[in-house]
Nucleic acid binder design. Structure first.
Length: 541
RNA sequence: GCCCCCAUAGCUCAACGGAAGAGCGUGGCCCUGCGGAGGCCAAGAUGGAGGUUCGAUUCCUCCUGGGGGCACCA
């Protein structure tokens, strides 16, 4: 009995007991949620608040029906402070434990969604190395992908490469400037990386007069040599790199999209430019699709890209992760895509606020053009990637992330990352010690029997409770698209493990083999849960 | 001027309209025991004024203070 099942089954009861009108009024606001405080049970609902308002005379009979219907799944179902609280029953937890002993990490997969979803993230311009802001995108995207997969979604992780357009031409000019073939201008890219590349490929950089072609070449070098290397160090692996330039090889795609706008009378030609009249649908400004110089804009590419994902490649859900500076662009893009027939529910945009890097009191601004940045590599030279991921995942995308390099280094021995790794090391150490004593830890025992014994232990039961509620949380994370909710849950679990370790002596005179099996399972679950964040669990610290 | 995000404990941050939680720091307690990088206990917070609601950190309005955006850049 998961939260969602309780919710659905309760609704069936209500449907039977209430008139259609009352049911609809109540169902609209009905909520089941995980209690924040486990002293108030595991699940809770606002049902009684709503009933009091809508149909108070039914309260008693409905309450009795619920209590009766679910008594096998919950030890207690209590009215407390006006809430209706459900305390997960030993029988449910016993079954969870039994299943997890059988299926191990596969227990956490609930495969009831089958949609294909494409997740577009990082997608930094291939004009320079990745910076800390891109990590935020990577961490969000990777973990979301993992949570989606647990629910059965078929996930494609995609990096959209802006390998054409004005900035790519600027990149080409910047390289030429480093070879003194052009004077530097303000908007040019700077940095050691570019100087090196210009030198390395100086014959070609000198010779190639087509900026677009040269820029595309350089972009590829940067993508391969800088960006992919950093991503690998960070532990992010994309399924696909999609090149913006490839969109323009598909004339049919372009025609198709333009035809729709034309039919809706949203296009305007002016001095050779093509303008999408978004002001006609209530936007505050129009968007250029084609510039006066005949070249398509980023906005046009973005339209084509999303149209292509949805209608040509047939993804049912498009999720994009953007920096918050794109919010205005996103609003207009969303509106445009709706005109093209992509519904809001098939289109999710996550924006994250800036990452500010501090070095003590000094705030370091990131500017690619000026060549001031903290790169991922610089950061990963001094901190493990897992720790960086951990710190980044903890914070909601809506808040700016203030990252103090000095503090991160100084505190590296007393932060939640090490606290969590320490739990992993402790569990592992129990198993190692047993091995040293010549004890076999790969024990095959009947899961049914072990589980029914172990679940009597309150410490163990409490850990199994987390196993159970992980699945509920997974659904919430995807519904809200907020993987940072996982962070709190995870730390809570870590705390339970330390408590377990302190209070349950596994290695005694008489070792209980069933407990050894549990410790091994616990270690495996913890490892699996670490990996959902892209963090490698440590066997020792 | 218009748009987006933020303001919670001394500090850094959580909280799907549901009972405000962590970490660090502070004060106590716990090592004849699997790793004390630990466990237990305590003090301590929703920027201001209204509104909606059974219930508001969460939604709405206004105010104050931060950050970001309003290109034929991406």
């Amino acid at each position: 009995m998961q939260l969602i099942d309780l919710y659905r089954k309760t609704k069936l009861i209500l449907k039977k007991e209430l008139s259609p009108a009352d049911y609809l009024a109540l169902e609209k606001d009905l909520k089941f949620f995980l209690t924040k405080d486990e002293n108030f049970g595991d699940y809770s609902t606002n049902l009684l608040f709503l009933l009091k308002k809508i149909k108070p005379e039914k309260e008693e009979v409905i309450l009795e029906t619920i209590k009766n219907k679910f008594k096998n799944y919950f030890d207690r179902i209590e009215v407390e402070g006006g809430y209706l609280n459900f305390y997960l029953g030993e029988k449910v937890l016993f079954e969870d434990l039994r299943e997890i002993l059988k299926k191990r990490y596969k227990f956490f997969f609930s495969l009831f969604k089958k949609q294909r979803v494409v997740l577009d993230y990082v997608s930094a311009n291939p004009t320079g190395p990745l910076h800390l802001g891109n990590i935020r995108s990577a961490v969000l995207g990777d973990s979301l992908a993992n949570f989606l997969k647990l629910l059965g979604f078929k996930v494609t992780k995609e990096y959209y490469v802006n390998d054409r357009g004005t900035q790519i031409e600027i990149l080409a000019k910047s390289a030429k400037a480093y070879l003194n073939l052009l004077p530097f201008e303000d908007e040019y890219y700077r940095g050691e990386y570019l100087e090196k590349i210009a030198q390395k490929y100086k014959d070609y950089v000198k010779k190639e007069e087509n900026f677009e072609k040269l820029g595309k070449f350089l972009a590829k070098i940067i993508l391969e040599g800088e960006i992919k290397k950093s991503l690998k160090r960070l532990g992010t692996k994309f399924d696909n790199y999609f090149f913006e330039s490839s969109l323009y090889q598909d004339k049919k795609l372009i025609d198709r999209v333009l035809k729709i706008f034309e039919k809706k009378n949203l296009l305007e030609k002016k001095n050779g430019a093509l303008i999408l009249k978004l002001t006609k649908v209530g936007e505050n400004k129009d968007e250029f699709l084609i510039r006066e110089n005949g070249k398509p804009t980023y906005f046009f590419s973005d339209i084509l890209y999303h149209y292509q994902k949805f209608f040509i490649r047939k993804f049912k859900l498009l999720i994009d992760i953007f920096g918050a500076d794109h919010h205005d662009h996103i609003r207009r893009l969303k509106k445009t895509l709706e005109i093209l027939g992509i519904k809001e529910k098939n289109l999710k945009f996550i924006t994250y606020q800036h990452v500010l890097i501090k070095r003590g009191e000094e705030i370091l601004r990131m500017s690619k053009r000026k060549g001031v940045y903290i790169t991922i590599d610089e950061l990963l030279d001094v901190l493990p990637s897992g720790l960086v991921r951990f710190l980044f995942l903890a914070i909601t995308p809506d808040s700016p992330l203030e990252f103090d390099l000095e503090l991160a280094l100084k505190k590296s021995e007393e932060n939640p990352y090490w606290y969590s790794q320490y739990a992993s090391a402790r569990l592992n150490s129990i198993l190692e010690k047993l091995k040293e004593k010549g004890y076999k830890i790969n024990i095959k025992l009947d899961p049914q029997k072990i589980a029914s014994h172990l679940i009597k232990d309150e410490l163990i039961k409490n850990l199994v409770r987390s196993f159970h509620k992980f699945k509920d949380l997974n659904l919430i994370i995807i519904k809200e698209l907020k993987p940072n909710l996982y962070y709190d849950f995870f730390l809570n679990f870590i705390k339970k493990i330390h408590y377990f370790y302190e209070n349950k002596k596994i290695i005694r005179e008489e070792i209980d083999r069933r407990e050894v099996v549990f410790v091994k399972t616990l270690r495996d679950v913890l490892g699996f849960w670490f990996k959902l964040m892209g963090v490698e669990p440590m066997k020792k610290i």
